[in-house]
Write a protein that binds this DNA or RNA. Structure first.
Length: 111
DNA sequence: ACGTTGACCTATA
DNA sequence: GTATAGGCCAACG
């Protein structure tokens, strides 16, 4: 069950519940490559080229900052998508990020 | 082929 | 608490 790193990232990203957010490091750690958090960002970049829908807007950095919003169709598309799901975004930052944080490793482990 | 960049994180001072 | 350094691996020029 070893798929490409990017493929796995897409899988986890799709598992993110609606109205929840996670971080690159959490996904990278869940995949076993804790230090490869940067590759998660690259994977998200390729997510737009993927046939499946990948909610890249639900993935933010450790500080809950929308660092990748500039890579979206529009500079405001990311926060608009998040707010559309009920996630409050202020100044390119997720409000109550700690409360909305979704750790794939913990959630999948307890399941 | 080599050097730089990048949607980041952790550690140390 | 902030500031600085190192690491990570793939894509781009």
């Amino acid at each position: 069950m070893e798929a490409d790193f990017f493929q796995r990232v897409f899988e986890v990203a799709r598992m993110i519940p609606l109205g929840r957010v996670t971080s690159y490091g959490a996904i990278a750690r869940c995949l076993g490559s804790a230090g490869s958090s940067r590759m998660v960002g690259w994977a998200m970049n390729l997510s737009h080229h993927q046939p499946i829908y990948v909610p890249a807007h639900r993935v933010v950095n450790r500080n809950g900052l929308l660092t990748g919003k500039m890579h979206f169709s529009s500079p405001t598309a990311m926060e608009e998508l998040l707010q559309n799901e009920g996630v409050r975004v202020e100044k390119d930052r997720v409000v109550d990020f700690n409360h909305l944080f979704w750790d794939p490793m913990v959630e999948l482990s307890e399941h």
